[in-house]
């Protein structure tokens, strides 16, 4: 109790999910096959931020998104879950950037961190669509924060200068690490149970602020979007499948599958 003020910045991405059947238009998937949603990893990061806010006396949770106006719908979801206010960065330079690489994202987010001076930044481990998995750690390096990647447990007392985290390594092993603040943590799925927005939360979200920012307003030059990396091909990989598919009605399919399983030695 009596803790000092703390600010948590959560990086929230809107990502595109592709339908099972889709078509490719040039270097992108045809827009009609894309459904936009809150990035799954970021849903857990939002929850982690809101839990800190609920546990502390004076914790503000701010979200930041790089994305067009369309993303406001996704940002409202985060606001409805308890984020206090949001920042959305977009302008014609970002709009015209063909390949937004992690270095550019880190530079943009770093400018927001300079403005907001958070104690803790939470970001998803990766985004569903590009699975790049680099922005959070690159941001930490850019702003000189400490960091921890792939965090699946977080213990932090508001006011403390250290967070205790678990990092999920391969093969069912977790590493326990103490991280000095200010820090960026990249959040793994499963760290908590993301809440559903309540009706009250959804109503309240309508009156919360989504502050639009341009690169210029963040003190960034348009050259921040320059990248040595460019997308040159996007294609559906040739299927490597040589699976034997059983066909017919579900009963007929089950019958063939049962015969296979019996041949393989499965007995009820």
């Amino acid at each position: 109790m009596g803790e000092s003020f703390m600010k948590v910045l959560v990086a929230v991405a809107e990502v595109a999910d592709v339908e099972d059947e889709f078509a490719i238009d040039g270097l992108a998937i045809d827009e009609q096959y894309l459904n936009y949603d809150l990035n799954e990893w970021d849903d857990y990061a939002v929850e982690a931020g809101v839990q800190l806010q609920e546990a502390g006396d004076d914790v503000e949770v701010v979200s930041v998104t790089i994305g067009p106006e369309r993303a406001d719908e996704t940002i409202r979801m985060a606001l409805a879950k308890g984020v206090d206010r949001s920042i959305r960065v977009w302008d014609e330079n970002l709009e015209g950037t063909e390949y937004l690489d992690s270095g550019t994202k880190a530079d943009v987010l770093a400018a927001v961190v300079e403005d907001e001076q958070p104690d803790l930044v939470l970001a998803g481990v990766q985004s569903d669509d590009t699975a790049f998995g680099a922005t959070g750690v690159a941001l930490a390096e850019e702003v000189g924060f400490e960091w921890a990647a792939v965090v699946n447990d977080l213990e932090y007392e508001p006011g403390s200068d250290t967070a205790s985290v678990h990092r999920e390594l391969e093969g069912g092993v977790e590493e326990f690490t103490d991280v000095e603040l200010p820090a960026v943590l990249t959040i793994q799925t499963g760290i908590n149970e993301p809440r559903y927005a309540s009706l009250r939360g959804i109503r309240q979200a309508q009156s919360k602020e989504i502050a639009p920012k341009t690169l210029d307003e963040l003190g960034l030059d348009a050259s921040v979007t320059d990248s040595d990396v460019s997308l040159t091909q996007l294609y559906e990989p040739e299927t490597e499948s040589d699976a034997t598919l059983f066909e017919g009605s579900p009963d007929e399919e089950a019958d063939q599958l049962a015969e296979l399983l019996r041949d393989e030695g499965v007995e009820a």
Binding site: A106, A138, E141, S227
Partner: peptide
């Protein structure tokens, strides 16, 4: 491109101003 790799590769590339492509 492992859990630990992704815990330092972006910091190294950003620190060295190298373009990074993951996975």
């Amino acid at each position: 491109n492992t859990v630990n790799g992704l815990d330092y590769a972006p910091a190294v590339s950003n620190g060295l101003s190298l373009p990074l492509v993951t996975d």
